[in-house]
């Protein structure tokens, strides 16, 4: 009996836990399990999910990217200034932050893959640099439509309607960012499961030397992973600007921890024990459900972090107990 039950707990424990949490909140508050609230939750996690997909990719090649939060911040203000300061067309507004995200990823890859600085230290340094850049660029001000400029005039541009629709609009009654998020999750899952490059990333992360000795170009694979991580963080930043309707300073600061938490909760989903897209998505859902439900129960905002942290610890404990048992078994 016990032999059957344990693997089952490891495999489905996380999902059952999510189910219980949803059930709990639904019983406590009748408004919780309604279409509007569910889409609300999904919309609230859409930005973090994009960032978390990037983190999943870099962790897949066994590299931690601490710079994603600051990349979100930089991308948000660049997106906003493209419209407010420079009145650029929508295409430029979208492409520039994506390119900047890719450049941050390349910088990370240069430091980690080429110069061989350990990933945590290199991305920590880049996190500082990017953070500084985004504040220097905006002189520390948040960016909003027709904002006053330092020379006394007001900025010429406004956040365009089409752009705001990306973050605030609805398609077939579903918030557009939710649709984008689901598409991204599906695409990333397909990427890892069914494409050559995804497989190469998984194998490189599994054992870089063995992958290299199988003829994989592991340096290129790792570089691509960091670039992807930067690009996904940049998408998160664009969505943030669109959702809020302005370019907030330090918008991405909490994103790093939230996305990393989602990814690590994801380790425990289906007992994967490694970064995986579906797990990351459920991790983000769990975090979103907790915040939403606790807010409805009028739990103090700052208490949320304690509960989120505790859930992360629980997920990690389950994952690593399982992994260590499997190793010794």
């Amino acid at each position: 009996m016990k032999n059957r039950l344990l693997p089952f707990t490891f495999k489905y424990g996380a999902l059952i836990f999510i189910g219980f949490v949803i059930l709990f909140f639904s019983l406590r508050n009748e408004y919780f399990f309604t279409y509007n609230n569910i889409t609300d939750i999904l919309r609230s996690i859409s930005i973090v999910t994009f960032v978390a997909i990037g983190v999943t990719i870099s962790l897949t090649v066994d590299g931690f990217d601490l710079s994603v939060g600051s990349t979100v911040s930089l991308s948000t203000v660049i997106t906003a200034t493209m419209m407010v300061w420079y009145e650029m067309p929508l295409v430029v507004v979208l492409v520039v932050p994506l390119a900047v995200g890719a450049i941050v990823g390349l910088l990370n890859a240069l430091l980690i893959v080429k110069i061989r600085i350990p990933d945590l230290l290199a991305t920590l340094a880049v996190m500082y640099i990017v953070n500084g850049i985004h504040k220097t660029y905006t002189k520390g001000y948040s960016i909003y439509s027709n904002m006053p400029l330092s020379d006394g005039t007001t900025a010429p541009g406004v956040m365009s309607k089409e752009f705001l629709w990306i973050g605030q609009g609805k398609l077939f009654g579903v918030p557009f960012p939710v649709i984008l998020m689901l598409l991204a999750v599906i695409a990333a899952h397909i990427f890892f499961k069914y494409t050559r490059w995804g497989r190469q990333m998984i194998m490189t992360g599994g054992n870089e030397e063995a992958a290299r000795l199988s003829g994989l170009k592991v340096k290129r694979v790792r570089t691509l992973a960091y670039v992807a991580s930067g690009v996904f963080a940049a998408i998160g930043g664009i969505l943030f600007a669109s959702r809020i309707g302005s370019g907030q300073i330090d918008a991405g600061a909490p994103m790093l921890m939230e996305s990393v938490a989602a990814v690590f909760v994801g380790y425990s989903v289906f007992a994967a024990g490694r970064p995986n897209i579906i797990g990351t998505f459920f991790g983000a859902v769990l975090m979103g459900v907790l915040v939403n439900g606790l807010t409805m129960m009028n739990v103090q905002y700052y208490t949320n972090d304690i509960i989120k942290g505790a859930v992360l610890v629980l997920a990690l404990a389950v994952t690593f107990i399982h992994l260590n048992r499997r190793k010794s078994g």
Binding site: I202, M203, G206, N207, E209, A210, A211, L213
Partner: peptide
């Protein structure tokens, strides 16, 4: 086990 195969795959 370190170079020839990926043991966890």
């Amino acid at each position: 086990r370190k170079e020839g195969i990926l043991v966890r795959e």
